[in-house]
Nucleic acid binder design. Structure first.
Length: 322
DNA sequence: AAAGTGACCAACCGCCGTCTT
DNA sequence: GAAGACGGCGGTTGGTCACTT
């Protein structure tokens, strides 16, 4: 006999999360830390299955998530890593600590696929003119394989050194805080969690807690309901991010902070790994993580690319594109 | 102004390996 | 060892918004 079910199938709510639900989930995790998702619905009263809670946390509420436009740097890394790893979004995301696998996947499907398709179409046009790219792609593939082998070795070495107490490793200096070690003081990773939380609170204020209050008796005392009537009760918080009047009070009430301005709030610091609140929170594959700086160096090795546009060197998996 | 279309993205679904009983 | 739930992952869907006709 296995374990008891995590949640009942009946009575489980689906669809978009309300800001209220977000707050309940965040406050629970603030208290208990992420993990043990099975207990979340029962402990919080959320009518969500544990899977949904975990997904909401990892893809939206988790501290340090960067949203919005991908930088050129990130874009290049994704393209290169996708060519190397395939559609293993979680693995790719492990090299982009501020991005979720879902985000990367969406970005790939909506932007990069098209972009690369266009580029390939352009290349095929060139090929027809007598400029075949097959040879260079084969060379490139060989280079990747050699480099991959090198990186695997380096990762192993880093892991060994990490597991050897009292033996600091230079390789580890570029590792992410999710590995459970002290991050460099200047590194901003996981520092901007307030953006997520403030988004949801702002969204709540915009959309108004009116309807969500109908179904809940918790977490509501701090909400200023003024102006909520003309607004919908559900929806993605950041899509309604227009004003946040009264949010400071709400935030203070919930988390005990004066402000949640993402740039310099106390909350931002409190949610950072240094203060321990989410120290246990981790991304996959942390222990065997290849140091980011090494990967980046490898990814953007000018010499390997011979000064050409690297995208043209990427061997594109047709199955992933079409 | 209304209808049509495409882009974007949050969330669901189903599979698989791991873990617990 | 077997059964079944958990946790994680990748693929896909559906709702919303913006832009075009």
């Amino acid at each position: 006999m296995g374990r008891p079910p995590c949640c009942d199938k009946i009575g489980v709510k689906k669809g978009p999360w309300t800001p209220e639900e977000d707050i309940i989930l965040v406050s629970y995790i603030q208290e208990h830390g992420p993990g043990n998702w099975r207990a979340v619905p029962t402990s919080t009263g959320l009518l969500r299955c544990s899977k949904s809670c975990r997904l909401r946390w990892t893809n939206y509420l988790r501290p340090g998530i960067k949203r919005g436009n991908f930088t050129d740097h990130e874009e290049k890394m994704i393209i290169h890593l996708q060519a190397l790893l395939g559609n293993r979004w979680a693995a790719i995301a492990s090299y982009l600590p501020q991005r979720t696998d879902n985000d990367i996947k969406n970005f790939w499907n909506t932007h990069l696929k098209k972009k690369l398709r266009k580029l390939q179409a352009g290349q095929e046009g060139q090929s027809r003119d007598g400029l075949s790219s097959t040879g260079s792609q084969q060379i490139s593939r060989g280079q990747w394989e050699r480099r991959l082998q090198t990186d695997i070795n380096m990762a192993r070495q880093a892991l060994c050194e990490a597991l050897s107490p009292g033996k600091p490793s230079s390789l580890l200096t570029g590792l992410k805080p999710s590995c459970g070690y002290e991050k460099p003081a200047t590194e901003p990773i996981y520092a901007s969690s307030t953006e997520n939380i403030s988004r949801l609170l702002k969204g709540w204020m915009i959309s108004g807690p009116k309807q969500s209050l109908k179904n809940s008796t918790t977490q509501n005392s701090f909400i200023d309901t003024a102006g909520a009537d003309s607004l919908s009760s559900e929806g993605t918080p950041d899509k309604a991010d227009k004003n946040g009047t009264g949010l400071s009070q709400a935030f203070e009430s919930l988390f005990g902070f004066d402000s949640f301005d993402s740039s310099n709030s106390d909350f931002s610091q409190s949610m950072s790994p240094d203060t321990g609140l989410f120290q246990d929170e981790s991304k996959p594959n942390s222990s065997a993580q290849v140091p980011l700086s090494l990967i980046e160096r490898w990814l953007f090795d000018e010499g390997a690319m011979q000064g050409k546009d690297y995208i043209n060197e990427v061997t594109i998996d047709e199955d992933n594109l079409f």
